[in-house]
């Protein structure tokens, strides 16, 4: 029993974070928002960093890492508000594809869109090379209707017929939870920096307890969502029967933390937070979007509810890490 990230895992997280801090700051989000919203150079950079092949076996040209690494990277993608379909392709779809496709995927030559009846849309369908649905891949349709999301960097399209696939749903919910955590962490950072800089009554507003207590409450929520995501990733990686319950639990906690971070951050920013000019809105809107994606709060609470209150799951204090 050792509930710590390994040194390699911490290094991976730090390397990705440093890269995205340098290459994918708020100015990039503004440029994308004013232009094409997707940029092959950003995709190429992410592939260069090894993210495309993160979960692909080494003999197919990947790094052969696992779900712990995947959620760490997904958290960083959420923190940087990366909008390319790298999470869908590399962190969700990759292990569910055949070997030759994994090879192309690891090389950055394949983008996969994900179709599942739980979502009334498909993200990044127009630029996808194929669609994963119901456990198999199909060709992306020639034509699709674009929908507009509140999130300016999100590209959504009307669904084609999609088949259910629990493995896809669970993986996607887990990766989405990790992205929500990252978005929440970033919003706490943004609000904290603003509170240090903005002065009223002759002092930084961050010196007032009203502001401190708001932000401290966000820190608590994020802190206690994080290990839920790690446990879910570990349980899924090791094929524990409880993994779907842990994933749902993690998705609910990450959603609650991110939405709370968003609402608190806009409050701390005051009227500035209500403008398009302040960076906060990119993460806030992403949090709203991901909160509903891959099963909303009600869906995932229901899964946990059925297991816990429905009475099938042993819940004595010794069962926290149980595999069966």
């Amino acid at each position: 029993m050792d509930f710590r990230l390994t040194e390699d895992q911490r290094n991976l997280r730090d390397v990705i974070r440093d890269y995205l801090d340098k290459e994918h700051g708020p100015e990039v989000l503004r440029r994308l928002d004013e232009g094409e919203r997707r940029d092959p150079a950003i995709w190429a950079g992410l592939v260069e960093m090894g993210i495309a092949g993160l979960l692909v076996p080494e003999n197919h040209g990947g790094l052969e890492m696992g779900l712990i690494e995947a959620v760490l990277v997904a958290t960083e993608l959420g923190r940087a508000n990366v909008s390319e379909s790298i999470a869908d392709t590399a962190l969700i779809a990759a292990p569910l594809l055949a070997g030759d496709r994994q090879e192309a995927l690891a090389a950055g030559e394949l983008r996969v869109a994900l179709a599942h009846p739980i979502n009334p849309w498909i993200a990044d369908l127009a630029n996808a090379d194929m669609v994963l649905t119901g456990g198999k891949t199909i060709a992306a349709p020639e034509q699709c209707e674009a929908l507009e999301s509140v999130d300016p960097l999100r590209l959504l399209y009307t669904p084609m017929s999609a088949d259910a696939d629990d493995a896809l749903l669970d993986r996607a919910a887990l990766i989405t939870a990790a992205q929500l955590l990252g978005a929440g962490e970033r919003m706490l950072d943004l609000a904290t920096e603003y509170a240090k800089m903005r002065e009223q009554f002759g002092q930084p507003i961050g010196s007032f307890q009203a502001i401190k207590h708001h932000l401290a409450s966000v820190a608590v929520k994020l802190e206690f969502a994080r290990p839920l995501i790690w446990r879910a990733a570990y349980a899924a990686q090791h094929g524990h029967a409880r993994a779907p319950i842990h994933i749902s639990h993690a998705k609910v906690a990450a959603t609650d933390a991110a939405v709370f971070a968003a609402e608190t951050a806009i409050q701390v920013h005051g009227a500035m937070g209500y403008t398009y000019e302040v960076d906060l809105h990119f993460w806030m809107k992403r949090a709203w979007a991901l909160a509903g994606a891959w099963g909303d709060r009600a869906f995932h609470r229901q899964r946990v509810d059925e297991a816990v209150l429905g009475g099938t799951l042993p819940i004595t204090p010794d069962q926290t890490f149980a595999s069966e």
Binding site: F3, R4, P227, H249, V252, A253, T320
Partner: peptide
């Protein structure tokens, strides 16, 4: 349900800190 979920979260965080 929330009470159960939060008790789990607290347990996980404690194992993390203890480690």
């Amino acid at each position: 349900l929330q009470a159960w979920m939060d008790a789990e979260a607290y347990a996980l965080n404690t194992y993390h800190v203890a480690s």
